[in-house]
Amino acid sequence: MTRQLITLIVNGDRYQVPVAPHETLLDVIRDQVALTGTKRGCTSGACGVCTVQGEDGRAVLSCLALAIEWDNRPVTTIEGVAGEDELHPVQKAFLEYGAVQCGACTPGLIMTAKALLDENPDPDEEAINEALAGALCRCTGHIKVKIAVREAIKAMVADAAAEDSHGV
């Protein structure tokens, strides 16, 4: 089996990693780049715990992506979401509103919610449901997750408004 050296750009850092064609982006992020926040769940695209953001910011299932196709394409994982000193508003809202029980789904849900808000800062109920349908939580029944996402939206809208008025 021949391995090919690729450059994986994870959270802005470049990693030279040898990959075989059958290795998924998930395998390489966890086992070679050693960032284990991205979880391995169903490995068949149904649970969403392996969600990362691709170069266009969209949610991607790393269990169904071949690493070899991600040469020189930026990826954001849960480790790259928080700022220097503080958590991302979605992370804060998950903490504050208790959208976490066992925690296994949390990285995938946060990446899913962040991908949604990066693309659409003010999604309606239908858009939130549509996005979250691809990432499962078996503890909370998604109710607290949805509350947290709605609160994160409010916080981000308020932050943006504060920044605007500050600028004036």
């Binding site: 969403g48 691709g54 969209r58 949610a59 991607v60 299932l61 549509e130 996005a131 691809g134």
Partner: peptide
Amino acid sequence: IRAVGSRHVRNM
């Protein structure tokens, strides 16, 4: 097309 899979799946 919107009915296929999940948003994650449709992104790919």
